[in-house]
Design a protein around this nucleic acid. Structure first.
Lengths: 148, 148
DNA sequence: TATTGTTATACTCTATAACTATA
DNA sequence: TATAGTTATAGAGTATAACAATA
């Protein structure tokens, strides 16, 4: 038969597996990042900010599919911690340019190491092939982010 | 180098991929299940209830790692729709036995087909090997549910 | 007119605390 | 004493609506 009998085990349901794998990684990375004063959501934001040229709040929000009103509070908190700075974009004063501060650069470097360790811990039971296969497969399922 | 440079693409971060793959599957399955009057969370509950012998609310909640106070409202709604029934367990009157009604059995059969179609739609870009590899890999990352 | 950032507000989801009844 | 179900309540997370500034 193509559909196996229902054993009642929720791990037969892909939605359950995706939800709980994400939950487990969030727990591990939140714990790893907590000493730096940030969580996994902050890490995602910092990673976009840290890449290449300075970004606007709107760009960061769109890249991560986070509502721009939600982004305000996230940047507020990172700014209060001295990790990022906000200033009006001289080229378009509607925009805020968001950048890592000097101290924020150091925090970001540590955050990359902490997050990577959490990912490795989650993936520890997997073979090297399964590890890279997981990322490749998920990338094929997830559409490119808005700005692309 | 073992860590690639940060391109700013959130799809390089496993947590982003897991979150958005889950989000996409939830959207697809919610849409597929909506004509039946249930959503993907209800489907997970029905799947546990439909397996084998009748279950208590507490068992269903623990199996899915849903708080028992949250389960009350979920079962309330399924009962109001005539999909499941509740009755005290004669063997232990603290417990509610939760079962599919006759009409609920029919809804459940349709729900399995609808959910499976949503999973297939999500997985459509993948090879057969990648599809089964994804489930196997995720299962290795997710601990067995409480009752086991 | 459209976009960016902001604020105030509301909504959803879920958890905590306290209660009842049963064991 | 401990467990199952329930209710009321509170908190986190996120979205919607409306506004000011700027393009």
């Amino acid at each position: 038969m193509s559909t196996p009998a229902n054993s009642g085990d929720p791990r037969d349901v892909l939605a359950y597996l995706l939800k709980h794998a994400h939950l487990r990684l969030t727990e591990l990375s939140d714990a790893a990042l907590a000493p730096l004063g940030i969580d996994s959501k902050d890490y995602g934001v910092l990673r976009v900010i840290a890449a290449g040229e300075p970004k606007s709040q709107a760009y960061v929000a769109q890249t991560l599919s986070i509502d721009r009103t939600t982004m305000v509070a996230i940047i507020d908190a990172l700014e209060a911690k001295g990790i990022v700075s906000r200033r009006p974009d001289p080229a378009d004063r509607r925009r805020n340019v968001v950048e890592l501060t000097e101290s924020g650069e150091a925090t970001y470097e540590k955050a990359v190491a902490a997050y990577d360790a959490a990912e490795r811990e989650l993936m520890a039971p997997l073979s090297a092939g399964a590890r890279s296969g997981l990322s490749d497969t998920l990338r094929a399922l997830v559409a490119p982010p808005p700005p692309g």
